[in-house]
Nucleic acid binder design. Structure first.
Ligand SMILES: NC(=O)c1ccc[n+]([C@@H]2O[C@H](COP(=O)([O-])OP(=O)(O)OC[C@H]3O[C@@H](n4cnc5c(N)ncnc54)[C@H](O)[C@@H]3O)[C@@H](O)[C@H]2O)c1
Ligand SMILES: NC(=O)c1ccc[n+]([C@@H]2O[C@H](COP(=O)([O-])OP(=O)(O)OC[C@H]3O[C@@H](n4cnc5c(N)ncnc54)[C@H](O)[C@@H]3O)[C@@H](O)[C@H]2O)c1
Lengths: 218, 218
DNA sequence: TGCGTTTTGTTCTCACGTTCACAAACTCCT
DNA sequence: AGGAGTTTGTGAACGTGAGAACAAAACGCA
C-alpha cells in the first residue's frame, strides 16, 4: 500500500514528541485519512494493536518499516547530475530512512571530474563497472526526457529492477521492473486546473448575482 | 482528471512528429492506458473526435490545454531557495507549458543577496509586498519540513490558493485551497517495498525448488 | 446512393477501495 | 469480580472507477 510510508512518517513524528501509544483516530487524524481505512490497512500487516488501548508507536513503527523493507538499507544510483541531480545528491533526507546514495553517473565527461557530497561522478558508460564495485538496488533518472528511455534500458540491462524517473516521459520497461514517475509539470497543471475551475465558479457566482440583481430590478 | 496532462504531453509529442490525426488506440498506447478509458476521459470534455477517423491532434491539444487552463500563463512563486529551490528556479521545463517563475523567496538574509536565473531572491518577510508587485497564482514550498506549515499559512493568508509542497509534511489548509505533495522518500519507499517483495518471492521460489529437489531425492 | 469498414461515444457490468457499523477484547474503577 | 468505557478488527453496504461490448456516425468506394 502507498499509504504505509505516510503512516510511518506520522508515527516517527509522534515518537519524537515522546508519545508511546496512540489510537487509530489520532494517527488517522495526523495523516488525514479515515480511521477505519487506517485500521484495515494495519490489520493487513497483522494484529499489532490492543483493543481498548491503541497501538504501541515504536512497535508499529518497526512493523511498518519491516513491511516496507526499511530494516535494510537501499543503495541508490543517480543518473544525470544536472540541476536536479545535484540537488538530489546533496539531499540529506535521503539517508535518514535507509536510502544511501551509492553512485552518481552522467554521460557528459566534464561532469565526471567533480564529486558531489563526497561521491565522485562516474561516466555512464562505465555503468557495469560501477555496479560491479558497489551494488545498487534503485536507479534514479534525472536526465533530459530524450535520454531517459535509453538510460532506463541500460539500467534494466544491468540488472536494476526499480527506477524512479524524474524526466517527463513514459518509460517502457519489461515486466518485473518497477517504475515510479515524479512529474513536476503534471502537478502544476493539476493545480492550474483547479485554480481555473475556482476562477470559473467565481465568475459564475458573479454572473448569478448579477442575474439575480437584474431579476429583482426587472 | 489527473490524466489530461499525460494526454497533452503525448499529443504534443505526436504533433512534433508531424502527425495531425490519431485514433484513441494510438494515443492510449502512447500513454499506456486503456483506449476506452481515454475515450471516456475525452468525451467528458466534449465531442472532439470524428467517428471512423479519430482525433485532430492540434485541435484536441488546444481543447485539453483550454480545459486544464494552459491557455493563460500561471505565475509561480518558489519559497525556500536551497538545494531543491535552486534546481527548480533554474528549471527550463517550467516555462515551456504556461508556467512562469515570478518570484523567489527565502527566509535566510544571505540568500536574498543572490539571484537565480535572472530572478532576485526576496525576503519571505516581504511576501505581501512581493505579491503586490507581481501577481502569483501558485506557491511552491521547498523549505525544510519544519517550516513548511508556517510558510503555507502565510501563503494562504496572502491569498494564494494553490500550493505545491516538496517538504515531507502533511499541510493543513482551509477548504478552497489546493495542495499537491511531491514526496521523494515516499516514492523510494514504495520502490523498496516492491523490491523487497520481489526478493521475498525469489527466496520462496528457491525454497520451493529446494523442497521439490528434496522430495525427488526422498 | 448504398454497403462495408473504421472509430467514436456510451451503456452496462464488475471489481475494487472506502466507509459505516458493530462485536470482540482490553483497561480501569468500584 | 463485574460493569462501564474504549478501541481494535472485520463483515457488510456503498460508491466510484475501470474494462468490455455495442450502437451510432463518418468515410470510401462502387
Ligand atoms: N531541474 C528541476 O527542477 C526539474 C524539475 C522537474 C523535473 N526535471 C526533469 O529532470 C530532468 C533533469 O533536469 P535538470 O534540470 O537536472 O537537467 P540538466 O540539463 O541540468 O541535467 C541533465 C544531466 O543529464 C546528463 N545526461 C544527458 N544525457 C545523459 C545520458 N544519456 N546518460 C546520462 N546522463 C545524461 C547531462 O550531462 C546533464 O548533466 C529533466 O528531464 C527535467 O525535465 C527537472
Ligand atoms: N534536495 C532535494 O533533492 C530534495 C528532494 C526531495 C525533497 N526535498 C525537500 O525539499 C525541502 C528543501 O530541501 P533542500 O535540500 O532544498 O533544503 P535546503 O536546506 O538546502 O534549503 C532550504 C531553504 O529554505 C529556506 N528556509 C528555511 N526556513 C524558511 C522559511 N520559514 N521561509 C522561507 N524559507 C525558509 C532556507 O533558508 C534554505 O535556503 C526539504 O523539505 C526537503 O525534505 C529535497
Amino acid at each position: 500500500m502507498a499509504r504505509l510510508p505516510e503512516y510511518l512518517r506520522a508515527l516517527t513524528s509522534l515518537a519524537e514528541q515522546g508519545i508511546s501509544v496512540c489510537s487509530s483516530e489520532e494517527l488517522a487524524g495526523a495523516v488525514n485519512v479515515n480511521s477505519a481505512k487506517l485500521r484495515k490497512d494495519l490489520s493487513y500487516l497483522g494484529s499489532y494493536g490492543t483493543r481498548g488501548v491503541g497501538y504501541d508507536v515504536d512497535y508499529l513503527r518497526y512493523q511498518i518499516a519491516r513491511e516496507i523493507g526499511l530494516t535494510q538499507d537501499w543503495p541508490v544510483a543517480i543518473v544525470g547530475i544536472g540541476n536536479l541531480g545535484h540537488a538530489l545528491a546533496n539531499y540529506s533526507g535521503f539517508g535518514t530512512r535507509g536510502f544511501r546514495v551509492a553512485a552518481l553517473l552522467d554521460a557528459a565527461p566534464e561532469r565526471c571530474e567533480e564529486s558531489v557530497g563526497g561521491i565522485p561522478v562516474r561516466s555512464f558508460d562505465d555503468l557495469d563497472a560501477v555496479l560491479a564495485e558497489t551494488p545498487v538496488a534503485i536507479g534514479v533518472i534525472a536526465t533530459p526526457a530524450g535520454a531517459a528511455q535509453g538510460v532506463a534500458d541500460r539500467l534494466v540491462g544491468a540488472g536494476i529492477t526499480s527506477i524512479l524517473n524524474f524526466a517527463p516521459t513514459n518509460l517502457v520497461v519489461p515486466a518485473g521492473v518497477s517504475v515510479r514517475k515524479v512529474d513536476l509539470s503534471v502537478e502544476l497543471q493539476i493545480l492550474a486546473y483547479h485554480e481555473q475551475r475556482r476562477a470559473g465558479a467565481e465568475e459564475l457566482r458573479g454572473a448569478a448575482i448579477a442575474a439575480a440583481g437584474e431579476e429583482q430590478s426587472a
